[in-house]
Amino acid sequence: MMQRLPSAIAVLLLALIFATIAIGHAEQTVLRPLAESYVRLVPHELGAPNVITGILLTYRAFDTLGEVAVLFMVAAGVGLVLKEPGKAGARSASDSEAAQPASEIVRTAAQILVPLIAIFAAYIIMNGHISAGGGFQGGAVIASAVLLMLLADPSHKLNSVFLSVTESLAGVLFVLVGIAGLIFAGGFLDNRVLPLGQFGAFFSAGAIPLLSVLLGVKVGCELSVILDRFRA
């Protein structure tokens, strides 16, 4: 009983913190001046109903480019430190045991679920400007679909050359769209290079859907390459 005491105390403390946050939570009814100006400006100037995506991909888009660069550095660092899967070294007995596929139920379920999760990821990416969603979130869900594929069939080899080329191409296109914003419209990564369209329609808000797709592809490929490295 005494050995369970630290875990019990930890769980009770976490419950206390969560209860304090949940009870004291009240939705703000009056916005601060900066937030109010953003809420007014984004649907009017950018034509995007989702204020957060509008800020992330237009007003503060340079920060998003920095985040993309940080993710790229993380992927490069992981690739430097970990061994490449399937390379030489000794294929001992435990390796061949680890390469056995999962049971038949998991494999069949993965065949049904991987396309479903990929469609859901595409839905999240494309809905970045209309409702909650965006590029980074959709990219993470794509990587979880790849993780399911790797769990069901451990001997499946990912084509890491294709993934690396796609990821770099997406990053280059992101910067090119930004430079096009510099030449044709107000500034770097301005979204008015493409027509704004009707408010709330699927193809609207200028270049924001295009940027969301590029971000989603880049993040998905990066996280898949990192997951591939962690395999035995």
Binding site: V106, F120, G133, S144
Partner: peptide
């Protein structure tokens, strides 16, 4: 949508 993503993540966590 949050509930759906939560379902995906919990399933993957248990299988992994």
């Amino acid at each position: 949508d949050v509930a759906l993503v939560y379902g995906v993540l919990s399933f993957l966590a248990v299988v992994a």
